[in-house]
Design a protein around this nucleic acid. Structure first.
Length: 577
RNA sequence: GCGCUCGUAGCUCAAUGGAUAGAGCAUUUGACUACGGAUCAAAAGGUUAGGGGUUCGAGUCCCUUCGAGCGCGCCA
């Protein structure tokens, strides 16, 4: 209950109930630019009661005053808004409570759920490119936040490790020799490997035939073929891990649940759908027709679960995956951090799973969809050579650009410190640029903007944090000693900062409610802006006695929220930069 | 053709159905021996793509037109 908005809503509700003569009236407490908060509930209530909105608002205010449990002043304004300005002492007490809390006022989830976050999902023997950036970064941020509020989180990396391309990839591996291929792949030239295999497949009927035979061998469980496949998977995941390490995301080998993991459940999907009477034979394929989908001709659109030639496809695998997550793992919230183009496919999979009873009431599957990364031409981001940029190259460029800035601005830093900071800034900038806009929209990738120290960027937030750390280096005092201080909230910048700090709880809650990390980003930016105003107008080290201690306490708490908030986004907060 | 998503300041983006639609960049004007100027303050910039509707109240919800992107049977 750190956020005054939440506290006020709870305090105002009984007054609204009393005026309405019933329970459960929403006071509609919202942020306000004319007060600390405004309650809009009277406008909606007026119609129900057949009274004028102002009249209702006045009655509510009178009732609140009678109860006397709101530490602040209320007044009716406009058509019937109730503006609330809380007392400085109230803010001070709330700030002190948050400062004493390791969780910084963030409430644990009302009920802990078992959450599966399905994200990243690169393909074996294929380069990770910008297309994987968003899923990886958004998914990882959500994982961190869900864990922080106390949910049990299971990360799942649904890598593409199965399917017909593996015939040609394994044959190419054999042609190269295992050592040669290992060298090739460990260098990170996954695309080169894939393209060579593809080129041979397209050019040679003989190779094509070998590849086809190899697919059959793979699917039938031939030991040697499986070993070679496993080698490809292993070499690829080692490479993915390098990228994850560079990106500072939490995925490990333990989180890998590739498509192949569901092979054993595929026939069960078919059997169970059949037993439920949901299967229809169509052009030799086994399909399900979930209601509400049509194709080009206006005919019902099927979800194909067994191809005409008897093979299974990704829909089957996705259904087996749902069964695994619900029935074996017992998850009650499954997040698919997957690009928007797959919306229809996932929607059909979810619908079929619901029809089959595999997603029972209370178990939610959510497509956390996101838009594309665009270049300055507003088209899909391409490198200078016109190819899809490799993720590692993008990240290395980010670090290099950040490194130049650090070297220029802070040349006296030791080289290893510079390198560490450059990494936090560069990677942070890329991640923040991705996280800070509404995920459903496309966003424009722009080096200059994301690395700028002005505006809603990672470097700006990191800079605000570093400035605070600088104050403490200079002050030479133990920050933890400040956490029992009840600050003095006097200046308007102190009020603004206190209110901002107290909003952390709601920011995290809002973010999780909509799976939208940009809400936390916006919050952190507003917090940093509030701090900057405070920093300009309220001298800290130059102040004396209790004022100095009070302001130091506000600095400490601000820095902690910034650091924690950035951490929840998967971004580091250096003490110097 | 059908479906989904998007359309907000010159640019990049915000805005759980609430008052006068907010930021940053760029532009213009101020503040420089500064607790980190990698800063701050101010000005200017809008028919929220167009049109209807619901509502006490719409950028937000519904309908429609236009524009953009992406999907639409055996690839994943």
């Amino acid at each position: 209950m750190a956020d005054p908005l939440v506290t006020l809503a709870a305090l105002l509700q009984p007054a609204f109930d009393a005026v309405a003569g019933r329970s459960g009236v929403d006071p509609v407490v919202r942020p306000s630019d004319r007060a600390d908060a405004q309650a809009n509930g009277a406008l909606a209530l007026a119609k129900e009661l057949g009274r004028s909105p102002r009249d209702v608002a006045e009655a509510v205010v009178a009732e609140v005053r009678r109860r006397g449990d709101v530490r602040g002043t209320l007044e009716v304004a406009g058509p019937g808004f109730v503006n609330i300005v809380v007392d400085g002492s109230f803010l001070a007490d709330e700030v002190a409570r948050v400062a004493a809390d390791d969780r910084l006022g963030v409430r644990p989830a009302a009920r802990a759920r078992k959450v599966i976050v399905d994200y990243s999902a690169p393909n074996v023997a294929k380069e990770m490119h910008v297309g994987h950036l968003r899923s990886t970064v958004i998914g990882d941020a959500l994982v961190r936040m869900f864990e922080f509020v106390g949910h049990q989180v299971i990360r799942e990396n649904h890598i593409g490790d199965w399917g017909t391309p593996f015939g040609m990839l394994i044959e190419h591996l054999i042609d190269l020799g295992e050592d040669e291929a290992a060298e090739h792949l460990s260098l990170g030239d996954l695309d080169g490997f894939y393209k060579e295999a593809r080129a041979k497949f397209d050019a040679s009927d003989d190779f094509k035939e070998r590849a086809r035979a190899r697919v059959v061998a793979l699917q039938s469980g031939d030991a040697e073929t499986r070993r070679l496949w496993q080698l490809l998977v292993q070499l690829s995941t080692e490479y993915f891990n390098l990228v994850y390490s560079l990106l500072d995301v939490r995925l490990t080998d333990a989180d890998i649940m590739g498509e192949s993991a569901y092979n054993d459940g595929l026939s069960a999907v078919l059997d169970r759908l059949g037993a439920l009477g949901l299967l229809t034979e169509s052009d030799g394929a086994e399909v399900v027709f979930p209601p509400g989908y049509t194709n080009r001709d206006g005919d019902p659109l099927p979800l194909i679960v067994q191809k005409g030639k008897g093979g299974f496809n990704y829909a089957t695998s996705d259904l087996a995956c749902v069964i695994d997550r619900v029935e074996r793992i017992g998850s009650d919230l499954i997040l698919y951090v997957v690009g928007a183009p797959q919306a229809q496919h996932l929607s059909m999979v979810f619908d079929v799973a619901r029809l089959a009873g595999w997603l029972p009431e209370g178990t939610d599957a959510v497509h956390v969809s996101f838009g594309s990364v665009l270049g300055s031409d507003r088209k899909m981001l391409k490198s200078r050579s016109g190819e899809t940029p490799k993720l590692v190259e993008l990240l290395e460029e980010a670090i290099a650009r950040a490194g130049e800035a650090v070297a220029e601005k802070n040349p006296e830093l030791a080289d290893d410190a510079k390198a560490a900071i450059a990494r936090m800034l560069g990677i942070g900038a890329v991640k923040y640029a991705d996280l800070s806009t509404d995920r459903v929209r496309d966003y424009v990738f722009d080096w200059e903007r994301m690395l700028s120290f002005d505006g809603n960027t990672a470097p700006y937030l990191q800079y605000a944090h570093a400035r605070i750390c600088s104050i403490f280096r200079r002050a030479g005092i133990d920050r933890s000693s400040l956490r029992a201080v009840v600050p003095q909230i006097v200046e308007k910048e102190e009020r603004a900062l206190a209110l901002a700090v107290l909003g952390f709880d709601s920011a995290v809650a809002d973010t999780l409610e909509r799976y939208s990390p940009h809400r936390l980003c916006t919050y952190l930016y507003e917090l940093a802006t509030a701090f900057t105003g405070f920093y300009e107008h309220c001298p800290v080290l130059k102040a004396d006695g209790e004022v100095r201690e009070s302001r130091l306490a506000l600095c400490d708490l601000t820095a902690r929220v910034l650091e924690r908030g950035l951490d929840l986004l998967g971004i580091g907060a250096p003490e110097q930069m």
